[in-house]
Simulated scan of single mutants.
Amino acid sequence: MKLLTYVAFLRGINVSGKRKVPMVELRAMCERLNLRDVKTYIQSGNIVFKSSIGRTNEVAILLHNEIQKHFDFDVPVIVKTIDGLSQIIEKNPFVSQEDITANRIYFVLLNSLPAIELLKNLSEETFENEAYAVVDNCLYLKCALGYGKAKLNNNLIERKLKVIATTRNYRTMDKLQEMCN
């Protein structure tokens, strides 16, 4: 039985004291689901693990349902394979080392491909001090003033593109890729 390496991204946990998910409990829950080599990174809901389940959507549903049962609230879950994560990082169009070091580069992971018409509508809008590009199921975001001041934030992206999304900075994505290897 071949084990695949996955990264799960949980949306909106441990923010402002709401939807608290202790990482120790989350890891233990994952291990009860027969996920192997479970590691979490920071408190925002990043899990690296191995599983014999062969499809990311099956893993996402498994985690979503168990989190809902265990913690008693709904948490959107996006799951990527290590190859999928590597491709997302490689396709990042914002590669300025200065921007990466200054924490201006963000990855908005989309749970599905947005409709072409919705992407077209979004492309007609401008956001001062922000640049973005959508490649496959990731919206790459460069925030000149930092993500905290960004107008094009996760909630707006979800509303405009009608998809579930979760945002991570470059350092987090890079660290998760390192943890997978």
Rank of each mutant, 00 (worst) to 15 (best):
D74G: 01
I116D: 07
C138Q: 02
V134D: 01
A102S: 15
N137W: 00
I116C: 00
Q87R: 14
A102G: 09
F71R: 02
L119G: 02
V108L: 13
V95L: 14
H70S: 07
Y106L: 11
T101Y: 15
Y106C: 09
L85V: 13
E66P: 01
I78N: 00
V95N: 15
V134T: 12
K69R: 12
F127A: 07
H70N: 06
K91Q: 13
F94A: 13
E125I: 05
G84R: 06
I67P: 00
V79S: 03
F71G: 02
N137G: 00
A131E: 12
S112Q: 15
V77S: 00
A131S: 10
V75P: 09
T101G: 11
A144F: 11
L109D: 01
A131M: 08
S86H: 11
L119H: 01
D99V: 10
L109H: 07
R104G: 04
S123T: 03
T101V: 15
E130R: 12
L110F: 03
C138T: 15
E66Y: 01
Y106W: 12
Q87Y: 05
L109T: 08
I105N: 09
L145R: 15
L141P: 08
L119Q: 15
Y140M: 10
N129P: 04
L63V: 05
I78C: 03
A115V: 14
P76H: 14
L139I: 12
E130P: 00
Y106P: 08
T126P: 01
V95E: 13
L85K: 11
F71I: 06
S112C: 06
R104Y: 07
T126R: 15
I78Y: 01
N111W: 01
K69D: 10
N103V: 13
N92E: 07
A133W: 01
L85E: 09
E128T: 14
N111P: 01
I78V: 10
K120F: 05
T81D: 06
E90V: 02
R104W: 07
E90R: 11
G84E: 07
V95M: 13
N137M: 07
D83Y: 11
L122P: 02
L141W: 07
L85R: 13
P114V: 00
V77D: 01
